[in-house]
Design a protein around this nucleic acid. Structure first.
Lengths: 136, 136
DNA sequence: AATCTAATTGCAAGTAGATTGCACTTGTAA
DNA sequence: TTACAAGTGCAATCTACTTGCAATTAGATT
């Protein structure tokens, strides 16, 4: 698993540093969106600084290894790009459920064709906000 | 126009206050997503406080008169709920283009049916992030 | 293996968007 | 007209995140 992580980093031409290996390990283990705070909590026992977490998230995002997820929560969330999917978010209790799979490919390519000013789509958001059965 | 705004507020059982009237006027005039900062700038010459802008945005959002738009910018954006549509965002220069219309209704109702834990969808996000022709 | 260098990191301080406490004001229902 | 819950302004505060800078390190080069 660690080797796989190293492969990913090398392929992206990023230096293989402890922080990056640790973060990718965390993201691979938890298959759900994580905020900087979530990551920091998991790293409590290590000596990796909070600032490094932010910077590492930024470099992994830039390399397209992780992607931003907009959950309308207090902070930004990320997930592995190769685990890409969308979410239901309960605006009352905050619980998050994954949607089975990403179905918006066709809509995106159609939108791109119709667009006058845009030429490349790199990522997209598609999240549902409402109430879970418990809160409803 | 002002009367229409008052109607909207009364229907939502919100008090008709100068701040709310002013904000709704601004949102009705500009048919594009606006951040708290954008609104504050437009209100420079009035005596409406920044804090009031934030609180007013919150009350209008709660009443579902305006909706949040996640543009991955420095701050939160809002637009009138009855002007609901989605956007292209250039991650390089920040330019925003509206998508012609919202096409995800079917996907949403299908997702809701398949969901185990969710019963109500109140709003959704669907935005595309990439490069405009100038930046590409 | 030793060396070099740009990239990465930790620490402290700083920013900016947004929130809160509290006293004062105002919209509106009775 | 009055009463009072709701809304507002100001100052202070919070929190997620960023920046500057000196020290360290990954990994390419010799």
């Amino acid at each position: 698993m660690k080797n796989k992580v190293k492969e990913i980093l090398k392929e992206a031409k990023l230096k293989v540093t402890p922080a990056r290996v640790a973060l990718l390990g965390i993201f691979s283990a938890k298959c759900q969106p994580m905020s900087a705070d979530n990551v920091i909590a998991k790293l409590k026992r290590t000596k990796i600084d909070n600032v490094t977490v932010y910077r590492t998230l930024a470099s992994l995002e830039k390399a397209n290894i992780i992607q931003r997820v907009d959950l309308r929560k207090e902070s930004v969330y990320f997930e592995l790009s190769n685990h890409h999917h969308h979410h239901f978010v309960c605006t009352s209790c905050g619980v998050v459920e994954k949607l089975p799979k990403c179905n918006v490919g066709q809509i995106i390519s159609k939108s791109l064709k119709q667009s006058k000013r845009f030429s490349i789509v790199r990522s997209h958001s598609f999240e549902l906000f409402g109430l879970c059965k418990t809160c409803a």
